[in-house]
Design a protein around this nucleic acid. Structure first.
Lengths: 217, 217
DNA sequence: ATATAAATTTAGACAAATCTAAAAATATGT
DNA sequence: ACATATTTTTAGATTTGTCTAAATTTATAT
């Protein structure tokens, strides 16, 4: 597998995450910052290799073989992110770029041993689950903060948007995974939330609330 | 820099290590398992970029800029090797292949932090010095065991040949860096050595002795 | 010194991954 | 339903790194 092939497989995986049957050529092109014609070329190639189901004009999806490959890449990416944060003191907004490179390193022993060094983590620094060696990936039961009711209490377990801008915003406002969040009031006007984060009162816009995953308690 | 360019720079660095003015096209090709014509092409390109001094038919050498780049790649390679051995329990004959991949990962912060995690090691698992961040590389005073005199005592500090076969041989015979070695007798016939390794008598062929670096004590 | 051998470069080709522009297929709105 | 817009594919070009085969330069041996 070339890096490029792996990146396409990963893109299709991420786009097709919520039970979507097939993803469009254009969406893959956008995700990867390439042109649709490049995607078409690559889909033919990956289809030849039995990694994707591709029908002209009908979009593309991963085969079982492709899914397993995608999961192994995601596993590597997320384990490296944990390593960077836990062992090298990276902040959660710095890890993605480096992990994008590290995820292509090819060595089973390396990944198994890294997993062990990190004590078999289940989630990456953004709260996303780390696929097991056999490809199993657990779906955490979580919902968006924006969907919580008044007076509900929850724990922050992940972010939907993991852009540098959003993560820095959270840092600046001392909002971190593991924090407890209680919804005190919902502004009808703009759907913003008055919350208590670890007993600290805060006012969060609807945009913020709809990018934070929480788990009811 | 592409991976390929980096590999050529590294090859020229390793071939030119002992004060050689210029290395030949063929030697680079052999080192990299490519064809001489491919080397010629790449030398033109690296010359354009100011990384090598290249004159047709006259061989090639690194410019200062090229040397600095080479040292940064070697630094990364050797730090990763230390990481693999110290943190992930790799044996010294398993690290090279993986480090060949990891050395191309591009992140200054990653390498600085890795260096720190490993406590600023000076040598890699084979006894080779790790270039400092600024490119400084210390030359350890060492000589081949085969050049030691009778009754001399020394400490094993490195290997010349770091092939899997040689490293496994050393493991099997419990010869490791840091061991003390005393030369008891030299066989005139085949230049083999009778030595005491950590007080354990052993008989080493001339080939073995000429691939072990030691430091007199 | 010069024929021959060896090393190196050149010329031309190829595969991978990308692009642009044009053509074809599909989707959409009234 | 059909004209128009959008999406997707095709055709052909480009760049990078590689190769083979032929030509050229340098080295070597007598």
């Amino acid at each position: 597998m070339t890096y490029s092939e792996e990146n396409y497989i990963k893109a299709i995986f991420h786009l097709g995450i919520d039970g979507v049957k097939a993803v469009s050529t254009n969406s893959v092109a956008e995700q990867m910052s390439t042109k649709p014609s490049s995607v078409t070329d690559m889909m033919k190639k990956l289809s030849e290799k039995g990694l994707v189901n591709y029908k002209k004009y009908r979009g593309v999806s991963l085969t079982e073989k492709g899914r397993i490959l995608a999961l192994s890449i995601v596993r590597k990416h997320r384990l490296w992110e944990v390593f960077l944060v836990q062992k090298l003191d990276f902040s959660w907004d710095e890890v993605h770029e480096v992990a994008e490179q590290l995820e292509h390193i090819n060595s089973d022993k390396l990944i198994d041993k890294l997993d062990e060094l990190l004590n078999f983590p289940e989630y990456d620094p953004h709260g996303d689950p780390i696929p097991a060696k056999n490809g199993q990936i657990k779906k955490r039961d979580k919902e968006l903060l924006s969907q919580m009711e008044i007076n509900s209490a929850s724990i922050c377990v992940g972010v939907k948007d993991s852009s540098v801008a959003f993560l820095r915003f959270l840092d600046k406002n001392k909002i971190a995974l593991g924090n407890t969040i209680r919804v005190m009031e919902i502004e009808e006007f703009d759907n913003s939330l008055h919350v208590l984060i670890e007993d600290r009162p805060m006012h969060l816009s609807q945009l913020i609330a709809s990018n934070l995953y929480v788990k009811k308690i």
